[in-house]
Write a protein that binds this DNA or RNA. Structure first.
Length: 760
DNA sequence: CGCCTTACTTAGTAACGTGGGC
DNA sequence: GCCCACGTTACTAAGTAAGGCG
């Protein structure tokens, strides 16, 4: 399995790209025809001639197709030596028979039967030989709601297009990260209003944003939200069905005889551009994309899908097997090309993912050489060599991104290593004096995430084991000398210069490989550390998972993967703090009670106040709300039902709080025994809650998902699960298991090191 | 060669849906 | 069995890097 993954991997991507586009598409085309013939029996059920486009979608022929396919692939598979890998991927649950599966399950079953890492590769330089799909699914045309915004207090008639734009603005949360931030709100409003005015035309009465009142539309949208909340189960099912229908139609592609999932098959709908950070273009109107703007890419032999928007047609057609994309179009905000591509669990993505990790693993064998190289050059007489060496240290040790140049008129002002400016470094941030070797790095990185860390270059962390911290510090001082705050620290260093140097050291090495390498290496080392600790074997699976998450957190911190703390989270944490205090107070009360009982004074001890009443009241309200929901026909009734529901929930919450507040008490005067038992109970509860709060607090600003999804070699996690008897589902969600299907078969002693690079 | 285009990976957040505590 | 906090998924913005072109 993973071991035989052979030499394949880096082949298709790198070297052979050139002969690609034009010439090879012709060559590939002729080859394609040959292949088509060979495998035609294979495709027979899938290609009922004209309707082939919908072959992945339409109801009847499809059912035959998928089940036939399943059987075939299954048989083919059982002959190849590994039935084992299959079972755990089947959700852990007892395998369903084909008859019991719904359509989506059947398709996914069929897809799982294809193991690309055991299959032949497409011709060198090509990603596929045959590819067919249904194109993108377009959002529905805008339906006007007729709710009028106010201008200068007066309702204004708007055309549907104008109304749509106004509605995009009204849909923005006034307290959200764009309008709720006093720094970004003016940018957003300025951009939006400029585009809105352009739609309205010169002579429209709307001229001043301050006189605009979008509140009526905003209220309407909120009302719609409430109505949607009150839908019946039946309606909910219908929505799901129609969603599934478009998934069946557009969500799958046929690539070289097997089904693959498409990632983003829904065309991005129009709206207000939600750029992050202080993006200079936020608020601009993102236009609706017409089919004519879309280019689709499929094989020449594939049927061209009919465009699903009435009266429209695809803009252009391509047959380029050297690329992965199925559709592309231009977006009007930054004039960038966007793509529809296969999903993360597809073979295309799986192949490049595996090759990414193999490349990072290859770095294990070269890292000493590389560190020695930049150590030497840190003192080089050539300024360029010195800058390259210092940048490499930064990228290696601080895990910064390479940092390409950005045009701040067009994009947010964010930086990485090469684009660091003098103003982002603060020497001796704590004013500790001359021989202090601290620098505070403060800047906005990708997605405008704050990087703020004080690096003590003289500390053991950066000086021991060839850490070179002191020399790096001297270099930084040198690079910043006589420069303006706004000057680049690495004056003439660019990502291409840096990457050219890296390529000279190790084939395929680029700056971003260091992040993958360090993330995976860190995970592996952290996991190993805990496994070696005394008593490890006695831990439960859940406790082991906590340790895994701790290791994961180390990686996330290394990569500076953050998330903002939501209001809800903040209040939740606060309320937990309140609860903890209550528990502590209750414990005090219990101790006092015990003391008095010991003294034989049991008069006036607090007892439980009647709480059943409150509970009953809440339950009644809840029942009524349910009833209203079921009866509701009109919008007004639906809104009333939702309101009632919310009221009832508030009552229930209140009752719960009352219950919690006197949970330490008894109906009658308790015995000494009862009290002391409860005291020890409470001690335990308090400890548990303190742990819980600490854990939540530690995690609230760290995002574990990104590193798990993009940086940590999944084979490390799979092997860890296997040797520690932790079910893989505890670590990887369903989609992650699908994405990492190629990694599931590694043995329990698999290691992230240079030897795996040789294997492929 | 430096800049622009192309193609793909990485990223946080909003919306969604579900599993496990009451 | 219910419900909601929480994890998962969808969405699309924002990066990197290679290659082409003038």
């Amino acid at each position: 399995m993973a071991d035989d993954s052979s030499s394949d991997d880096d082949l298709p991507l790198g070297q052979l790209k050139k002969p690609a586009a034009v010439s090879s598409s012709a060559a590939a085309a002729s080859k394609k025809r040959a292949i088509k013939e060979e495998s035609s029996d294979d495709d027979a059920p899938i290609k009922p001639k004209k309707k082939a486009k919908t072959s992945n979608g339409k109801a009847k022929p499809d059912k035959v197709t998928s089940s036939a396919k399943v059987k075939k692939e299954k048989n083919g598979k059982s002959s190849d030596k590994k039935p084992a890998a299959k079972k755990p991927t089947n959700n852990g649950k007892a395998a369903k028979s084909l008859k019991q599966m719904d359509k989506a399950e059947k398709i996914s079953h069929a897809m799982q039967a294809y193991l690309w890492w055991n299959a032949d590769n497409p011709p060198a330089g090509c990603q596929w030989v045959k590819m067919e799909h249904a194109g993108v699914s377009f959002p529905e045309a805008y339906t006007p709601h007729g709710v009028k915004m106010l201008y200068d207090g007066q309702p204004v008639d708007l055309t549907p297009i104008e109304e749509e734009a106004a509605t995009f603005f009204a849909a923005m949360d006034p307290d959200g990260m764009h309008l709720g931030n006093p720094k970004t709100a003016p940018i957003f409003i300025k951009n939006f209003f400029a585009d809105f005015r352009a739609i309205l035309g010169k002579y429209h009465i709307i001229k001043d944003f301050k006189k605009c009142d979008f509140e009526p539309i905003r209220r309407y949208l909120n009302e719609q939200k409430i109505i949607r909340k009150a839908i019946t189960d039946e309606e909910r099912k219908m929505n799901k069905d129609s969603k599934n229908e478009t998934m069946f139609k557009f969500g799958y592609s046929l690539v070289d005889g097997h089904i693959e999932k498409v990632g983003n098959y829904n065309m991005e709908p129009p709206g207000a551009f939600r750029g992050r950070g202080e993006h200079p273009k936020m608020g601009k109107l993102k236009q609706r994309v017409e089919p004519e703007q879309v280019m689709i890419n499929l094989s020449e032999c594939a049927p061209v899908p009919r465009c699903s928007v009435p009266g429209h047609a695809w803009g252009d057609l391509r047959h380029d097997p050297t690329v992965q994309w199925l559709c592309q179009w231009k977006e009007n905000i930054n004039n960038q090309v966007k793509y529809m591509q296969l999903a993360a669990q597809s073979s295309f993505k799986g192949k490049s993912d595996r090759s990414k990790y193999n490349k990072a693993a290859k770095l294990c064998g070269n890292i000493d050489k590389i560190r020695a190289d930049y150590k030497k050059n840190l003192k080089s007489k050539s300024m360029e060599a010195r800058q390259i060496a210092t940048a490499m240290w930064v990228i290696d040790r601080l895990a910064l991104r390479v940092g390409g140049e950005k045009d701040t008129d067009e994009e947010a002002d964010t930086v990485g290593c090469c684009s660091l400016r003098v103003e982002h470094l603060k020497f001796d941030p704590n004013g500790e004096g001359a021989d202090n070797k601290e620098i505070e790095l403060e800047f906005l990185g990708k997605d405008s995430m704050l990087f703020k860390q004080t690096i003590d270059f003289g500390s053991a962390l950066y000086t021991e084991n060839h850490g070179m911290g002191e020399q790096v510090y001297e270099n930084f001082k040198l690079f910043c000398k006589k420069k303006k705050q706004s000057d680049d620290v690495f004056s003439d260093l660019t990502p291409s210069v840096l990457n050219a140097h890296l390529k000279g050291i190790m084939e395929g090495l680029t700056a971003k490989v260091f992040r993958t390498y360090n993330a995976s290496k860190t995970l592996q080392e952290e996991l190993l550390k805990t496994e070696k600790a005394a008593g490890w074997a006695r831990l439960t699976a859940a406790e082991k998972v906590t340790e895994y998450n701790n290791a994961n957190r180390e990686v996330a911190i290394l990569c500076n993967h953050q998330r903002s703390v939501s209001k809800a989270q903040e209040t939740q944490l606060e309320s937990l703090g309140g609860k903890l205090q209550t528990l502590k107070d209750q414990k005090k009360t219990l101790k006092k009670m015990l003391k008095r009982l010991n003294e034989g004074n049991d008069k006036g001890l607090p007892t439980k106040k009647d709480e059943a009443k409150a509970v009953e009241k809440a339950n009644k309200a809840l029942e009524k709300a349910k009833e209203m929901k079921e009866k509701a026909k009109t919008n007004e009734e639906k809104i009333a039902a939702t309101e009632m529901d919310e009221k009832a929930k508030a009552l229930k919450k209140e009752a719960g709080e009352l219950k919690f507040n006197q949970a330490h008490l008894w109906e009658k005067v308790p015995s000494k025994d009862q009290v002391s038992k409860k005291i020890s109970n409470w001690t335990e509860k308090i400890a548990k809650m303190e742990m819980n709060i600490k854990h939540k607090d530690d995690n609230k600003e760290v995002s574990l998902g990104t590193s798990k999804l993009n940086y940590m070699d999944p084979r490390i996690s799979v092997a860890w699960c296997k040797r520690n008897e932790v079910p893989i589902e505890k670590i990887f969600s369903k989609t992650m298991r699908d994405k990492f299907n190629w990694a599931m078969a590694v043995p329990s002693d698999w290691e992230f090191n240079e030897s795996i690079a040789k294997q492929g």
